[in-house]
């Protein structure tokens, strides 16, 4: 990873796959893992049986419709995870206690499958000691509090002073709206901020469109390839993962 020499007053960092590395697992695979944890917690704490396949299918459906609705009404905004959890509990016929369980399942799996990007954290710490303000700017349905919790858990003594998320501000990097929020709230000129991230559109093109300087930090090719293969596998296995819950449902009925 080559990090730029900079005189920026503020360094802004993307979170997922920049500050915190995801492993090789695809999003669908991660959702299945979350569903498996949630299913176990629901049984243990609420005595409710919901198969992992049902929870996984509900998550995919809720997220799909949430983002399709967003595209129709506010393509510059983002969905909030709390709203998705509320919809999921209703789709799964669960009571309000399930919201906390689903949230904890999400954090459990995220914490297990994410790891800190230590070289970047070390470099940022040095920049912070030299007087730079370090912020995180993430396109995510999670609130800033959740991202801060993940950073605190996975990268103790991290130098991130503030977290901006698209969900908190209903503004995404992909249309540069979130960068405009950052510039306003940080009371900074665009030239004062260097943004680091992995996504070409969100972290480079749109950051530069907002006037920021940017540097792209890409994951190694073998990680990208493994993740793509895992995504293919998840697509192939999708029916099986969802179907497992249907078989279970039928057998309970007998």
């Amino acid at each position: 990873m080559r990090l730029p020499e900079t005189v920026a007053r503020i360094i802004s960092c993307d979170v997922f796959d920049t500050l915190l590395y995801r492993d090789h697992r695809s999003e669908r695979r991660r959702f299945l893992d979350i569903a498996t944890v949630a299913s176990r917690l629901l049984a243990a704490e609420c005595g409710v049986e919901r198969r992992p396949g049902s929870v996984y299918a509900a998550r995919l459906r809720v997220q799909r419709e949430a983002y399709r609705a967003l595209d129709l009404t506010n393509p510059s905004g983002d969905v909030r995870f709390a709203d998705m959890l509320d919809a999921m509990t209703r789709v799964l016929s669960l009571d309000h206690r399930a919201v906390d369980i689903l949230y904890r399942a999400e954090l459990t799996v995220e914490s297990a499958q994410l790891r800190a990007n230590h070289p970047l954290m070390t470099w940022l710490t040095h920049r912070a000691q030299a007087g730079c303000r370090i912020i995180a700017v993430s396109d995510t349905y999670h609130r800033g509090d959740t991202i801060t919790h993940l950073l605190d858990t996975l990268a103790r003594n991290h130098p991130i002073a503030h977290v901006y998320t698209s969900a908190d501000h209903n503004a995404t990097k992909r249309t540069r709206a979130l960068f405009d929020v950052v510039l306003r709230q940080e009371a900074a000129g665009p030239a004062e901020i260097l943004h680091l991230g992995d996504d070409t559109l969100a972290d480079v093109t749109m950051a530069e469109a907002a006037g920021l300087r940017s540097a792209q930090l890409l994951r190694p090719r073998h990680v990208v390839l493994r993740r793509r293969l895992d995504a293919v596998r998840a697509r192939v296995m999708h029916r099986h993962w969802v179907g497992a819950s249907q078989d279970g449902h039928r057998s309970r009925g007998r």
Binding site: R61, V62, E65, A66, R68, A69, A87, V91
Partner: peptide, 16 residues
């Protein structure tokens, strides 16, 4: 209907 409700759940209430 369930899918329509999900969609409705995430549309902007004051404008749609």
């Amino acid at each position: 209907c369930l899918r329509l409700w999900l969609f409705e759940r995430f549309l902007t209430p004051d404008d749609s």
